[in-house]
Each structure stands twice: as C-alpha cells, then as structure tokens.
Simulated scan of single mutants.
Amino acid sequence: MNGKTDPGRAFAHHDHAHCAGDTLARAEAEAARRGLRFTPVRKRVLQILLEAHRAMGAYEVLDRLSAEGFGNQPPVAYRALEFLVEAGLAHRVQGLNAFAACMHPGETHAPVFLICRDCDAVAEAQAAPVRAALDQVAGALGFAIERASFEAVGLCPACRARAEGRA
C-alpha cells in the first residue's frame, strides 16, 4: 500500500512487529525532519502505544514506564504523550480518555478511530469523505474548521465473532 499502514491492521492478523517497527521508523524520520527532540522516554512511550495496538490511558503507559525504570510520576507519561500528540505521532482518543499511536506519521490525514468496545483495539482509518462533508456543512454556515476528531465505537471482527459464538 505505498508504504502506508493498512487502516484495518489493528483488527486483522498481521506481522505486528513489522507494522510497529515500520511506523516507529517513520515517526523517528518525521521527528528528525522537523527537528523535534525525540528523547528516550518519548520514543519508549510511542513504542508502548505501537506494541499495544489499542488505546491506552496515561496511567497504563506510566505503569509500563515505571516497570522499565523511566520514573513513576504522572508528569513523565503526560509530558511524553502531550509531545507525541502535538508532534502528530500519536492521537488522543477522546471517547476513551486514552491515546493511540498515529499510524500515518508525517502524512496529512483526517483520521477516524474505530474503537472496539470490548477489547479497546483502535484502528485508524481515513475519514476524508466525512471531513469533506463536514467542511461543506461548516462552510455553508461561514465556519472554518481548524481541528476535528472522528470516533466510532463498535465491535472489532474478533470480538464480534466471539459475541456471535463463532470464535
């Protein structure tokens, strides 16, 4: 797919190590291109989000950091997560009060987050048609959208199969 991450990968069987490694490499390249300081704790937080392939709360990230010797104070996790979101390397998933790694670092995109209500897996998919429709409606009212977030909650294929008794 032209080096881009398949939006449904979070819900499909795939080479997760390759997926996470490729996305991390693109995030590091983007940070370097923009002259951002990608400290060891920031990098580790992004790795933790990539390893999970789901939205994670700040305290869950902090628990992992603490277990690995990066510190156990909430600002450690919050500062790293804030940096990653501001740099476009992670997204805040409002509906879960959590964070997910951006699967398209360095690319201009309008993501929609497909969130599994059972396992918290999050797939980042393109929402360009949704954003275009929203821009059109807003424009008709003279409103200029600066930022928008799209989230949909449902069941991923695995949880749906379990719910239907097929797993």
Rank of each mutant, 00 (worst) to 15 (best):
A158K: 02
L114N: 12
A161F: 06
E107T: 13
R160F: 02
L155Y: 13
V153W: 15
D118E: 14
I145Q: 05
A127S: 11
L141Q: 12
V122D: 02
R131W: 01
E124T: 12
G139K: 09
R160P: 00
C159P: 09
V137L: 04
L134I: 06
Q136R: 09
C156N: 08
A110L: 10
C116H: 04
S149P: 10
R162E: 02
L114Q: 12
P105G: 10
V137S: 01
E146W: 04
R147F: 13
R160N: 07
A138P: 02
C116M: 06
A128W: 09
G154C: 08
A138H: 06
C119I: 12
F150T: 04
A132I: 00
D120Q: 11
T108C: 02
L134E: 04
V153K: 05
A123Q: 02
A110K: 09
A140F: 10
E146D: 10
A138C: 14
G142N: 15
C156R: 07
I145W: 05
V137G: 00
G142E: 05
V137E: 00
A128F: 09
C116V: 11
C116A: 06
V130Q: 12
E124G: 06
G154F: 03
A110T: 11
F143C: 06
G139Y: 10
V122S: 01
D135P: 05
H109Y: 13
C116Q: 09
F150G: 03
I145L: 14
C116G: 12
E151Q: 11
